[in-house]
Design a protein around this nucleic acid. Structure first.
Lengths: 156, 156
DNA sequence: CCCAATTAGACAACCAAGTTGTCCTTGAAG
DNA sequence: CTTCAAGGACAACTTGGTTGTCTAATTGGG
């Protein structure tokens, strides 16, 4: 009955969701190109050595078909190149283009700032909630973050 | 251009994904009813005091329409009841039925076991990866979990 | 050397879980 | 009392996956 895939939603808890939305908004506001997060993450995985669609699927724990889809989009955008592999004619070799690397570097810079901002904000509400969400998954014992006064599971 | 919503995928990183899949598989294996995680989470939010669709949407950071959808499913399943609110005729009051509470208790028990299992496994691969994924979002400084020997960002 | 099994990739149909936008009704507040 | 906000329902759409099926290329055993 295929719970797979749908289970991902377990993680889309409120706190995470908010944090992700904020990050996305900030990226856009600072001129980061209109890149879907799934695309962004796939590109980073390719840069990190996932040099074929199947391998990409394996790394991201998604199907090869889904990996191929996102790869196609990245290729259209010019961030990733798909070349024939001379050694294995079944494979299409994936590489991140210079443009792709440029974009990733830009994102890196923004994320650095976001981290700094979050680090200040972190004792307040965001991480508090994130922590309580996360503990649903991996339990209180394991999730301690830095725990100055966070008990974890007290959902308002 | 509506990055909202899609940004959630930023969080669907490999490590989380794996953990969530394992959890889902285990729940199924132990006879937990066929419940979508989004449904599960919504039910818990309702039990936690989200007594209307709009309020549910607010708590989960999703639209009231999405909240209403999942509520309908929960109602069909018999886990949640929708009643007219005598005080405000616009609202439909949401409550978790005894059956719903029963299911949640069952899930609680399974999760307790999972947490114990994860606590053992935690120094190994799973949390390692989860940690590295999470640090993409909120940075290394903030994510320290309990850090016995985890450096965090070494992606294979 | 050949054949069986495996693997990469493409294509199609489908689904889950959101999103907007619009509309109606009810309640609240000047 | 009139305007505005809020709750809810319905519809059309989008994203990011999922199977299932197919072909072509590689690999490994006898």
């Amino acid at each position: 009955m295929s719970r797979k895939g749908a289970d991902l939603a377990l993680l889309l808890l409120g706190g995470f969701r908010q944090l992700a939305e904020d990050a996305g908004a900030e990226l856009l506001r600072r001129g980061y190109p209109e890149l879907r997060p799934s695309q962004e993450f796939a590109m980073r995985a390719i840069a990190g050595g996932a040099d074929s669609a199947s391998e990409l699927g394996r790394r991201l724990s998604i199907s090869k078909q889904a990996a191929a889809k996102v790869t196609s989009v990245l290729e259209e955008r010019g961030y990733v190149a798909r070349m024939d592999d001379a050694k294995d004619f079944r494979r299409k070799l994936l590489t991140v283009t210079p443009l792709g690397h440029e974009v990733m570097a830009q994102g890196e810079a923004i994320f650095d700032d976001l981290r700094a901002a979050w680090a200040r904000k972190i004792g307040e509400t965001a991480l508090d909630r994130l922590q309580s969400d996360l503990s649903i998954l991996i339990g209180n014992a394991a999730v301690d973050l830095d725990a100055p006064g966070m008990t974890g599971l007290e959902e308002d």
